[in-house]
Design a protein around this nucleic acid. Structure first.
Length: 632
RNA sequence: CGGGGUGUAGCGCAGCUUGGUAGCGCGUCUCGUUCGGGACGAGAAGGUCGGAGGUUCGAAUCCUCUCACCCCGACCA
């Protein structure tokens, strides 16, 4: 058998592209299924991949990919390759082990911080295991791309990557070692056929093709560019309830974005104007010791979170030495949102038009901000301080109840909060007037994360809907961030030296494997989409030592293999119950069961994984066709 | 990095309070009976009780230190 196959493969032409399916016997490979999952495995994908013998944990966030798991990864990779190649990409392979020197030019060793898997080798060289390859490929391209005539160019690799996660978890969904496809494109312009925008759109289409072909239910959403930097960005999310990320979608226009990025549509301004409304009572100071979070404070004060004003203090960070010189001293941005909302740092930053960081509590205290107990009053009268208030917080009149709006907030004093905060009274001036007049330190602007039910920023402003998902792909327009930092510029056709414009495009290959299981399983096990299944057809031989059953199994396997179908033959001498349980667990799309009763009628039992009942009898000579029709 | 928890056979766990020959279920191996949804009987193999130090005649058990892992939070592809 083994000999026959090796002879055949020697006869094959090196350029033949007629793919024969693989035939594997369970007894000759390693599929260590288990009745129980490790106790720390909580998510279905983690439990089922371990129980089904796809993966095995080696240490926190690091896994063996056993034969079945590796086959699925290869199927994903192959789809990725085909679509990347079709979109004009060229595959290469860069090192995982890199000198930290490379990151000096962009400063990302610091930006990544502890997330970087970093060490010193025996010679004292500072090295890292790459979490991503912008610097490596930019360095390579800088030395290899010398003319505009070589552009545009799209290079990609499928590689093991590393992140020293604080807390690896959820099996393959968040590991310290994971497999990624990362692609980088190089351009000299934004527009035109050779421009970044066209390259980005091509990748967007390729990603849509890839995840469609994988059989995944996914959404493409607008996203923040994150630490990689750049101007535009989309995430590709597999839709499933157990996903870690929340996305918001507009049911009317299809607009979708993640929580960080999602804009909020026009909110109806209060009829009487912002801040207008009489005090609801005298300021009432309450002792709230040991209450770090808004939840505890609310409980202690018997106030709802939506009736609190949450005040977050940011410190302005100078992005250049010139800027630091031009604006000496500490500058602050104080952001106020309703207690049940979250401040969105990106939106505050965009509004303030400067780089921000969360204020250090000690430093803020010296400036008069008692972190944890700050109220909007703290910003009043302070020089170099901008107070920006979210529209939902800048309200003085409760229109629902038709009476003044009750607010509770911090007392600007350790371990104390106040009830009956009133905007006009407690700020000592009318904020609405102050905004427009000489006092420019007040502003009302949308600075919070969007939540379900907010008006959509597109169309007629239908309420946004929240969905959960797992991020499997992310594409960015980087612009010239890396090429500027690393001095990667070439001559254009006008003999002008120009920074190269880049895009970068990632797919979490091993995460896609887990996301697929998360999306598609039942109580008995995994249900693979045909495109990713480790084998397309499982032939379950009821009696391993029965000559007729073995012969028919081989005959069917050969027939299927000729047509490109991957076949796994369960030839173990196990009891039927064990084989059926294992079959459901590993989730091969089609099961052909060979037993005496069916064979006496020249038939086999045909069952689609996930379907109800025992399956149907199909004539042996029609079984292969039945499989092909079902898989098509 | 804060809070909580767990380390005993490949997997799941008991034993620890009150120190005295290391156990159970699943899995594995052998033999027999079975054979369409995780069979039954008989027998067998398998453990530096995470590691180091200490207390003690004697430590899985008590004490100290350490390492690893997990969960929640913060952070994040």
């Amino acid at each position: 058998m083994t000999q026959q196959r090796s002879q055949r493969s020697h006869q094959q032409s090196p350029i033949s592209n007629v793919r024969r399916g693989d035939i594997q016997r369970w007894s000759q490979t390693l599929i260590p299924t288990a009745r129980e999952a490790p106790s720390d495995a909580e998510l279905p994908s983690h439990r089922l991949l371990v129980r089904g013998g796809f993966i095995r944990r080696v240490t926190a966030g690091v896994y063996d990919y056993l034969p079945l798991g590796w086959r699925v990864l290869r199927k994903i990779s192959q789809i990725v390759r085909e679509e990347m190649n079709a979109a004009g990409g060229s595959e290469l392979l860069l090192p995982a082990l890199c000198p930290t020197e490379l990151l000096k030019e962009t400063g990302r060793a610091e930006d990544y911080g502890d997330l970087l898997m970093r060490f010193e080798d025996r010679h004292g060289r500072d090295s890292y295991l790459a979490p991503t390859h912008e610097e490596v490929i930019t360095e390579m391209a800088r030395g290899s791309i010398t003319s505009y005539k070589q552009l545009p160019l799209n290079l990609y690799q499928i590689q093991t990557k590393y992140r020293d996660e604080f807390r690896p978890r959820a099996g393959l969904l968040r590991g310290r070692e994971f497999i990624m496809k990362d692609a980088y494109s190089f351009h000299l312009s934004l527009d035109g056929e050779a421009g970044l925008n066209a390259g980005y759109d091509a990748m967007y289409r390729a990603y849509t093709n890839i995840f469609s072909r994988c059989g995944l239910d996914f959404s493409a959403v607008e996203a923040e560019a994150g630490p990689i930097g750049g101007s535009a960005s989309h995430e590709f999310m597999v839709n499933c309830e157990s996903g870690e990320d929340t996305i918001l979608v507009c049911p009317e226009t299809g607009y979708a974005a993640n929580v960080e990025k999602c804009e909020i549509g026009e909110r109806t301004a209060p009829a009487r104007g912002f801040f207008a409304g009489e005090p609801t009572g005298e300021l009432d100071k309450i002792h709230t010791p040991g209450c770090p979070g808004i939840v505890e404070v609310c409980k202690l004060m018997k106030v709802k979170a939506r009736d609190m004003l949450k005040t977050v203090v940011f410190k302005v960070v100078a992005s250049t030495p010139e800027e630091a010189e031009g604006y000496p001293g500490d500058w602050w941005v104080v952001a106020v949102v309703r207690g049940d909302h979250d401040v969105n740092e990106g939106k505050v930053r965009d509004f303030a038009e400067c780089k921000l960081e969360l204020a250090d509590p000690e430093q803020a205290k010296r400036a008069g901000f008692e972190i944890g107990f700050v109220s909007p009053r703290a910003a009043v009268g302070k020089p170099q301080t901008l107070l920006v208030i979210d529209p939902d917080a800048a309200v003085g009149w409760d229109e629902g109840k038709d009476k003044p709006r009750f607010w509770a907030t911090g007392a600007d004093e350790k371990d104390h909060h106040v009830k009956h905060f009133n905007w006009a009274r407690d700020l000592g001036k009318d904020p609405a007037l102050a905004m427009g007049a000489d006092d420019c330190f007040f502003a009302v602007h949308s600075i919070r994360n969007a939540i379900e039910g907010d008006p959509s920023p597109r169309g007629k402003g239908e309420p946004l809907q929240a969905k959960r998902g797992i991020e499997v792909g992310h594409i960015f327009k980087l612009g010239s961030k890396y090429s500027d930092a690393m001095g990667f510029a070439i001559m254009d056709e006008n003999q002008q030296r120009q920074s190269v414009i880049m895009g970068c495009y990632g797919i979490g290959v091993s995460r896609t494997l887990a996301a697929c299981v998360e999306m598609s399983h039942d109580d008995d096990g995994i249900i693979w989409p045909a495109a990713l299944a480790p084998y397309h057809v499982l032939i379950t031989v009821m009696k391993a030592d029965d000559e007729r059953q073995a012969r028919v199994a081989q005959q069917l396997a050969d027939e299927l293999s000729e047509r490109g179908v991957d076949v796994l033959i369960d030839d173990r001498s196990e009891r039927p119950g064990v084989k059926f349980k294992d079959a459901d667990l590993i989730g091969i799309p089609i099961r052909l069961t060979l037993g005496d009763k069916a064979l006496d009628q020249d038939s086999v039992e045909f069952k689609v994984r996930g379907s109800e009942g025992k399956g149907e009898l199909v004539a042996v000579r029609e079984a292969a066709m039945a499989c092909l029709e079902n898989l098509a």
